[in-house]
């Protein structure tokens, strides 16, 4: 029988550590509450038995690998493997120190969407988490009075937004791929949904933009979870000149989000970690997906498809489009 992803990851990780080919393996372990997974660094073969793969591995392990100098193996689905390729190019990781354990991915689920379907009921367990795209998960729980329930939810109803339009679900440039590849794309058309505000006029676009980011609490989870954000001092922390104030004024919050997104332009793999991390449920991808669409249209670039191509904003062509220049 074919191994499940969890079994295959454990076996691959264990072998790597046993054979001494890496010093550590970065993967996920079961979270302390249902619908969560926790990044974990295993240093011994025994610790590898804690690894899991679930529908809720919505972070980005490339950010944990980034900047490490020991030899690490990273459990990576399509988007994360592309981030790793990018980080190799940017010299954040040496390729010879990196081993990519590739996992073909069927898309992660948005725990908020699952919770919303069960509003007011506690989720105490995830009973079934199938490895088929069109499968159904089963969640359930009990209340204080001892009344219990179980609910069947279709995966396709509660996927994360970015996972509907994923372009590369299979790992890119992985050293090993632990299970059979899945269909390369998730089926959704990213270009069709990347710029939802484009149909409005400027005033309305501004309104939508302001509304989209009004709940931001400046916790910077979107920045900190992102493998592309590794500056020693982020521009929001610079004080002279102070590019971005520290307050909750809309100008400060908006400046942060514009620059954060722009700094990721041409490098973002649409992994969705920023939206998964946000405690306020803000849709940062409204900006990043627009930028990536432009990057594809203007310069035909797809980030992270190998570790040698320069990101589009670090290079040029003499005949680049220049519609905005007079």
């Amino acid at each position: 029988m074919m191994k499940t992803r969890t079994e295959a990851i454990r076996a691959a990780a264990r072998t790597l550590l046993e054979e001494g080919r890496v010093d550590a393996v970065i993967g996920y372990v079961q979270g302390t509450i249902p619908l969560r997974a926790q990044p974990f660094v295993a240093y011994t073969p025994e610790e590898c038995d804690r690894f899991i793969w679930s529908s809720f591995c919505g972070g980005n392990l490339a950010s944990i690998a980034s900047g490490r100098t020991d030899r690490v193996a990273v459990v990576a689905q399509g988007c994360v493997s592309r981030n790793l390729n990018g980080l190799v190019h940017e010299n954040r990781i040496q390729r010879e120190n990196l081993y990519i354990i590739g996992v073909p991915c069927i898309g992660m689920l948005d725990q908020r969407k699952v919770e919303a379907k069960l509003f007011g009921r506690n989720i105490e367990f995830l009973k079934r988490d199938p490895e088929e795209d069109l499968g159904e998960i089963v969640v359930g729980g009990c209340n204080a009075m001892g009344e219990c329930y179980e609910e069947v939810i279709k995966r396709r109803d509660v996927k994360r937004d970015n996972c509907y339009t994923c372009m590369h679900r299979n790992p890119v440039g992985a050293d090993t791929v632990v299970v059979e590849p899945v269909s390369e794309t998730a089926g959704g058309d990213i270009n069709a949904v990347a710029t939802p505000w484009m149909r409005f006029d400027a005033d309305r676009r501004w309104e939508e933009f302001a509304k989209n980011f009004e709940d931001c609490i400046r916790c910077y989870a979107c920045r900190d979870v992102c493998p592309l954000c590794y500056c020693t001092t982020c521009f929001v922390d610079e004080s002279n000149p102070q590019w971005c104030g520290k307050t909750q004024d809309s100008a400060d919050v908006q400046t942060f989000h514009i620059l954060r997104a722009f700094h990721c332009a041409g490098r973002c793999t649409d992994c969705g970690a920023c939206e998964s991390a946000c405690p306020q449920g803000i849709k940062m991808r409204r900006l990043t997906s627009m930028l990536e669409k432009d990057v594809r249209t203007l310069w035909g670039h797809e980030p992270g498809m190998d570790s040698t191509t320069k990101p589009p904003l670090s290079t040029y062509r003499p005949d680049d489009p220049e519609d905005h220049f007079k």
Binding site: F262, A265, L291, D294, L313, Y316, R317, D320, H324, F325
Partner: peptide, 9 residues
């Protein structure tokens, strides 16, 4: 050339 890409975007 570099700024052209950046500013266009």
């Amino acid at each position: 050339y570099h700024s052209r890409r950046r500013l266009e975007l």
